[in-house]
Design a binder for these strands. Structure first.
Lengths: 202, 202
DNA sequence: ACCTGAACACCGTTCAAGT
DNA sequence: ACCTGAACACCGTTCAAGT
């Protein structure tokens, strides 16, 4: 067949298709992506750096939904909180992709730039330089830890033998609303209060 | 060949071998495990519920290093903190296994029992029942989020273009000691303070 | 009950051949 | 430059056949 007049494939379409498949089935393979695009498996390799390259594309695609403007609005602490919520929401929009994406943090240029701005806000707020990265990484830990929780099926807490863990069963039954959201907001509130105190102490 | 007089395989040896391989290479396959045990791939399937069953074995094996006694010693808050540190340390002992294990939380009976005891301590301390699970899940989020960070290679923060993110580069350079440990301890301290406040408010 | 050997469907990746 | 077809090494899983 040879080269077509206009390319059949591009990175955008590969990313979109792979994300669709992951949203539907929780996994993807290169042949599956190729088939859905009506193309041979090998063709995909002309546009993308193998399967890992596609995963990286997914990471960037999902992360592109993070509202980076949140970082510039309002006082540093509310800005950081809004950024964290938006970060988590971006993952939450593709729960089945989370296990694929959280195995290593997002380090795409667009996201690194957000870290740069977050660092800037903390420095400008008066944080001691050696404290800045721990403060940011702790927030990243919160977001990714919560994202994993978001990806875990509700059934994780379906206790096969309630009599073995009666108080756990009680506690689970007593939760109002979303366990996951409440846990995240709780951790975020604790984080913010502590980080504010850290600033005042320095 | 047929059945041997004494079994060549058991779940313990399969788990140990798989964990060894993961520690060395960051991944494992059923054929790799079989080969190292001097056995046919198919034989493994007589002892274990497929590849996923081996992953579950790894999860239990790694989690078995969590010192559950920490939950019973001292006041509820220091007990919870010690448990979280031990939980994180258990993962830290097998960093290359972390991506394999954190995709879904540990729900093996031995670990569920620890959750039961953690719930018990919180109830006894006087927490409102609907608050208990969010408090525990938030802690789990901290631990797993930090575990992911532990698994991420240091090189994640090697900035290819420092001039694009100068303040991030500064902040990274200023860190004293382990970024990861400091971030975890920071998040944990914030968590504890907030949870203590939650108890007093109720 | 437990191991083997063979089989099946699927995977990631490479590469020469075509336009 | 981009797509194909064929190939390679490897994977997870099943199953009849043996003891």
């Amino acid at each position: 067949m040879g080269r077509p007049h206009r390319p059949l494939l591009d990175r955008e379409r590969i990313a979109t298709t792979a994300l669709d498949i992951v949203d539907e089935r929780g996994e993807f393979s290169v042949p599956q992506v190729a088939k859905r695009l009506g193309v041979q498996t090998a063709s995909v390799y002309h546009h993308v750096d193998g399967r890992d390259g596609i995963v990286e594309l997914l990471r960037e695609r999902v992360a592109s939904a993070i509202e980076s403007e949140t970082l510039d609005r309002g006082p540093w602490d509310t800005a950081l909180a809004a950024w964290a919520r938006s970060y988590r929401a971006a993952f939450a929009a593709h729960p089945r992709a989370i296990p694929l994406l959280t195995t290593s943090p997002v380090r795409a240029p667009r996201v690194l730039d957000q870290y740069e701005r977050a660092v800037g806000r903390l420095i400008d707020a008066g944080f001691a330089l050696p404290d800045v990265m721990p403060v940011i990484i702790a927030l990243e830990n919160l977001v990714l830890g919560s994202a994993l929780d978001l990806a875990a099926p509700e059934s994780m807490w379906e206790l096969s033998d309630e009599s073995a863990t009666p108080r756990l069963a009680d506690a689970l039954g007593a939760v109002r609303g979303s366990r996951t959201d409440q846990a995240f907001e709780l951790a975020l509130a604790g984080y913010l209060a502590h980080v504010r105190a850290l600033l005042e102490a320095s």
